[in-house]
């Protein structure tokens, strides 16, 4: 391989982003789900607010069902995993059938768990498959540039979610550093202005929290280069 078109670079980048979105939102969901068992029945409202999705659910029961499995809810975990799959399936030749299989397995697992009364238990396997997916990426994706583009997507998505979820500034800095490390190794077009803005805000540590909206805006515009 090693020859990547604009469209394929886009698929690699968004595959990384959506896989990461599923991973981090699912892990976060598990924390909120635990709260909803017997501590705070309405914790899902905070969850929606935190990750900036509309609360169209009305109750924790509906939320638990729709947010995880609803194919028609564009913000559901299922929809995000399906987007990851849509980007992965067209890249079989680059990422290998072995790597693609873990996205397929995660999707199948999510589908078969749709009636689960114990999502934290049944969906643990989705998390496991995502871990296996990234392990497979390192072992099976021969082209370093392709791996780095996927990881640009992964770390930028993680940065976005960590900012929204209020992770400690140390964790945010660490993910940003991982992102920059990958960015330096690829030839994607990006906005230097947005990079400078992110570097400044994240460099402020906890002092930069007040400007996280600005940072999220910079992530949004990072690869928007005409």
């Amino acid at each position: 391989m090693g020859i990547i078109s604009v469209e394929r670079a886009d698929h690699l980048y968004w595959m990384g982003r959506y896989i990461e979105r599923v991973f981090t939102t699912l892990c976060t969901f598990f924390d909120f789900y635990d709260q909803m068992i017997d501590v705070d029945f309405d914790a899902y409202k905070r969850y929606c607010e935190t990750i900036a999705i509309p609360d169209v659910y009305g109750s924790r029961e509906v939320f638990n069902q729709k947010y995880l499995y609803d194919k028609n809810d564009p913000n559901s975990v299922y929809s995000n995993l399906e987007r990851a799959y849509g980007n992965a399936i067209v890249m079989r030749d680059e990422i290998s059938s072995h790597t693609l299989a873990y996205v397929q397995l995660a999707l199948d697992c999510l589908e078969s768990a749709a009636d689960s009364k114990a999502p934290h238990y049944d969906l643990q396997q989705v998390i496991d498959y995502i871990h296996a997916f990234w392990g497979c990426v390192d072992d099976r994706v021969e082209d370093e540039e392709a791996r780095n583009i996927m990881k640009c997507g992964k770390y930028l998505e993680r940065l976005d979610l960590y900012l929204r979820l209020g992770y400690p500034s140390g964790a945010v800095e660490k993910e940003y550093s991982k992102f920059l490390n990958r960015l330096r190794k690829v030839q994607l077009n990006y906005s230097k202005e947005m990079e400078d803005r992110l570097t400044e805000i994240i460099g402020l540590g906890d002092g930069g929290r007040a400007r996280y909206d600005e940072a999220l805006d910079a992530i949004w515009k990072f690869f928007e280069v005409s």
């Binding site: 391989m1 020859i3 990547i4 078109s5 604009v6 394929r8 670079a9 079989r92 030749d93």
Partner: peptide, 22 residues
């Protein structure tokens, strides 16, 4: 070991066919 490509990845120039790299 061939590249899987979509039609938009290819273009013609000087009567030759090219694959557009990112």
């Amino acid at each position: 070991g061939a590249i899987l490509c979509m039609p938009r990845d290819l273009f013609v120039e000087d009567n030759k066919l090219f694959y557009r790299r990112y």
